[in-house]
Simulated assay, not measured.
Amino acid sequence: MTENDKKDPRTTRRTEARETRIPLEFQAFHQRFYRPYRRYAELLLGDEEIAKQVVHRVFYSLLVGWKRLMEEANPRESAWGHLKEAVDDYLVSQDREPAITETAAFYYRFREQMDDLRDRFAALETGLGLYAAISKLPPRQLDVVVLHYVFAFSRARTADILGVEEATVRSHLTYARRRLADELGIDLDTNRTDN
C-alpha cells in the first residue's frame, strides 16, 4: 500500500471491507443452523423476540471467534454448547426456569410426533406431568427430545445440529423415552426402537 493509498478513504473502505468479510463457511453454517437454534431457544425462553436476540448474539460471537471455532475438535458440538450456555445465561439472569411447560406449541407438536405414545399420554389428566418430566431430562436427552420429537428433525439432522453421531442421538432418545415412561408410570414396549 502506498502513502497515497493510506490517505484515500475509498482504499481504506475497501481494505476494511476485505478484512470484515464474512467467511463463506460461516455463511453456510448460519444458513444451516440458524433456524433450529432459534426454534430451540424460543422453546426454552418462551419468547420469539428474545430468542432471536439471544441467537443473534450467539452467531455474532461464533463469527468473531470463527477461526478458533474451526480449530476445535468438533466445531458443531462446540457451537451448540455456546447456544445452550447463552440460553442458560439468559434464564439465570432473569431468574427463570425453561419455558417448556408453558409453551403451547410444544404440546401440540410433541403429541403429533409421538404417535406411539399418544394414547397413553391422552389418558393422563393433564399434559403438565409430561412437560415437567421432559424438563427434568438430562441436558443432552432434553436436546434430542426437543429436536427430534418436537421439531420433527430426523435422527440424522438432529445429530448434525448437535455435532454428534446418529448412534448417540438414538441412544439418548432411548434413554429419554425410558426416563419419561418411568416418571409418568407408563409401561413401554422395550422391543421398540426410536424412529
Rank of each mutant, 00 (worst) to 15 (best):
residue 1 M to W: 06
residue 2 T to P: 05
residue 2 T to L: 06
residue 2 T to E: 09
residue 2 T to Y: 06
residue 5 D to W: 04
residue 8 D to S: 03
residue 8 D to T: 03
residue 10 R to K: 08
residue 12 T to F: 12
residue 13 R to Y: 10
residue 16 E to H: 09
residue 17 A to V: 06
residue 17 A to K: 08
residue 18 R to V: 05
residue 18 R to D: 10
residue 19 E to F: 10
residue 19 E to G: 10
residue 20 T to Q: 14
residue 21 R to Y: 09
residue 21 R to N: 08
residue 26 F to I: 12
residue 27 Q to S: 11
residue 29 F to E: 07
residue 30 H to D: 07
residue 30 H to P: 02
residue 32 R to K: 15
residue 32 R to T: 14
residue 32 R to H: 13
residue 33 F to A: 08
residue 34 Y to T: 05
residue 37 Y to S: 04
residue 38 R to I: 05
residue 41 A to D: 04
residue 41 A to C: 08
residue 41 A to T: 05
residue 42 E to Q: 00
residue 44 L to Y: 02
residue 44 L to Q: 08
residue 47 D to A: 02
residue 47 D to Y: 01
residue 50 I to P: 01
residue 51 A to P: 06
residue 53 Q to A: 06
residue 53 Q to M: 04
residue 56 H to C: 02
residue 58 V to W: 07
residue 59 F to S: 09
residue 60 Y to T: 11
residue 60 Y to P: 03
residue 61 S to Y: 07
residue 61 S to E: 10
residue 65 G to T: 14
residue 66 W to R: 13
residue 67 K to S: 15
residue 68 R to K: 13
residue 69 L to A: 12
residue 69 L to D: 11
residue 70 M to H: 05
residue 73 A to G: 06
residue 73 A to E: 14
residue 76 R to N: 15
residue 77 E to W: 01
residue 77 E to T: 02
residue 77 E to D: 04
residue 78 S to H: 07
residue 78 S to Q: 07
residue 78 S to R: 10
residue 79 A to I: 03
residue 79 A to D: 02
residue 81 G to W: 09
residue 82 H to K: 15
residue 83 L to T: 10
residue 84 K to E: 12
residue 86 A to T: 10
residue 86 A to K: 12
residue 93 S to Y: 08
residue 93 S to I: 08
residue 94 Q to P: 03
residue 97 E to M: 14
residue 102 E to D: 05
residue 106 F to G: 00
residue 107 Y to S: 03
residue 110 F to P: 00
residue 112 E to F: 15
residue 112 E to W: 15
residue 115 D to F: 05
residue 117 L to T: 05
residue 118 R to D: 10
residue 118 R to A: 14
residue 119 D to H: 13
residue 120 R to T: 09
residue 120 R to K: 13
residue 120 R to L: 12
residue 121 F to L: 15
residue 121 F to H: 05
residue 122 A to L: 15
residue 122 A to K: 14
residue 122 A to N: 15
residue 123 A to P: 04
residue 124 L to Y: 03
residue 126 T to D: 13
residue 127 G to T: 02
residue 128 L to C: 03
residue 128 L to S: 05
residue 131 Y to I: 00
residue 131 Y to M: 00
residue 131 Y to S: 00
residue 134 I to G: 00
residue 136 K to S: 00
residue 138 P to A: 05
residue 138 P to Q: 06
residue 140 R to I: 10
residue 140 R to W: 06
residue 141 Q to G: 01
residue 142 L to P: 01
residue 142 L to G: 00
residue 144 V to N: 01
residue 146 V to E: 00
residue 147 L to W: 01
residue 150 V to T: 04
residue 150 V to H: 02
residue 153 F to T: 00
residue 154 S to E: 03
residue 162 L to S: 11
residue 163 G to K: 02
residue 164 V to F: 00
residue 164 V to W: 00
residue 165 E to C: 08
residue 165 E to K: 11
residue 167 A to G: 10
residue 168 T to Y: 12
residue 170 R to D: 15
residue 172 H to K: 01
residue 173 L to G: 14
residue 173 L to Y: 12
residue 174 T to I: 12
residue 175 Y to Q: 14
residue 176 A to I: 02
residue 180 L to H: 11
residue 181 A to G: 14
residue 182 D to L: 13
residue 183 E to Q: 11
residue 190 T to I: 13
residue 192 R to F: 11
residue 193 T to Y: 04
residue 193 T to N: 07
residue 195 N to A: 13
